[in-house]
Design a protein around this nucleic acid. Sequence first.
DNA 1: GATTTGCATCTCACATAATGAGACGTCAGT
DNA 2: ACTGACGTCTCATTATGTGAGATGCAAATC
Lengths: 239, 239
Amino acid sequence: MDNSSGVGVIDKAALVLDALEAGPTTLAQLVAATGLARPTVHRLALALVHHRLVSRDMQGRFVLGARLVELASAAGEDRLIAAAGPVLLQLRDSTGESAQIFRRQGDSRVCVASAERPIGLRDTIPVGTQLTMKAGSAAQVLLAWEDHERLLEGLHGARFTPTVLAGVRRRGWGQSLGEREPGVASVSAPVRGPSGRVIAAVSISGPIERLTRQPGRLHAEIVCNASRILTEALRKSAS
Amino acid sequence: MDNSSGVGVIDKAALVLDALEAGPTTLAQLVAATGLARPTVHRLALALVHHRLVSRDMQGRFVLGARLVELASAAGEDRLIAAAGPVLLQLRDSTGESAQIFRRQGDSRVCVASAERPIGLRDTIPVGTQLTMKAGSAAQVLLAWEDHERLLEGLHGARFTPTVLAGVRRRGWGQSLGEREPGVASVSAPVRGPSGRVIAAVSISGPIERLTRQPGRLHAEIVCNASRILTEALRKSAS
DNA sequence: GATTTGCATCTCACATAATGAGACGTCAGT
DNA sequence: ACTGACGTCTCATTATGTGAGATGCAAATC
């Protein structure tokens, strides 16, 4: 099997990272595991340490570094956003409302992808916008499946109640009327990661005049369909 | 600031990975972001693709690859195990019982670190052992802080009840008598990751004769102390 | 439809960076 | 005190990586 990428140094660095996947490793063990010359492994490992892709433990052994966790987090975000594009466009076009995806970030939620209704009265939420976890159907969805303590903590000062969150879990979606902003209604459903945990909320939002006082009745089915497509896409791309 | 590690190719590869942290990026954008020559970026990016550290999306743009998620997962495990060593030894010596750390893995829990009581009657659980999520104080702890649905699902066929799990959450620890194996008692407490989520359980286990029918009364304080030390160590090492 | 432009990919002469044998320093074991 | 194993460093050598320029392709423009 051809294991050469065309850049020898990167091939060797990859061997070092592969060896470290098994856990903390001394230089001698790395030499044995990679088959490379000792000074070569030493030099490459120090270069990886320099870039925080590798670090050293208290005994001087080499271990995988924190930068990998940072890059992996970004990689996970990439996958969600990649899957989101076509799904949000379809959701926007099917419902005629702006569509977004939110992720939790401490006491806030952040819009990581959106597709705006192009004309007329619309709810505009640019990517990067931070909104409250205390109001709105996306906040309900991001909170509804937290463990009991985190759920209770999140309810402090919230515009919704435990009964509302129980309804969200039962139906699989949430709706809100004028919670985050007067005159705005929204519907949200959970996006689950490969482990089954809720990692994001997919939403539509717009004026109450159009969405009515029962936005879920109008749009919950199609928003839930979008959440299933996204959940499935993330499950597949993790394989 | 000296940004040179002594291995130029690794320095350049790190620039490419840094640039990709912002999201999917065309070759032209990578050239601009890194300041490197176009064929150089092209060659390095293809080499990283070869090793799955990078991949390409449907539009041919470069994105961070799945291998990073795999390595990051291993890096996270490294940190927990690194922190566990001295804490489990101290826990074993203070209580005179065998000590372990468990992580959840679907319907099972896996022992990822252990310190055995060296002599006499003792509970031996080698690293790598898979045990049930339906019995034992570690299972209680790994389940107690799950969201409501996953908690209910986990309780199917379990040797403990919702009331027991409510007690675990209230006290911050769990205990069991002969649940996993007749004659064995255990005490467990949660280890939390930087996000506050329960990611592991720290436990002691041994014969009921020594631990009595109230093992928590004897040892809960010191097991909880160990769980705080571990949680704090993980919080610090993520900075 | 023809032409132009921008981008990705490839080639290869050449300069430089990476290699690894060997030396050196340190520390644990005997 | 001696030995062996390991990590770190040096530097002559050479193999690798570089990048200017060429090529191919597709989208944009006329």
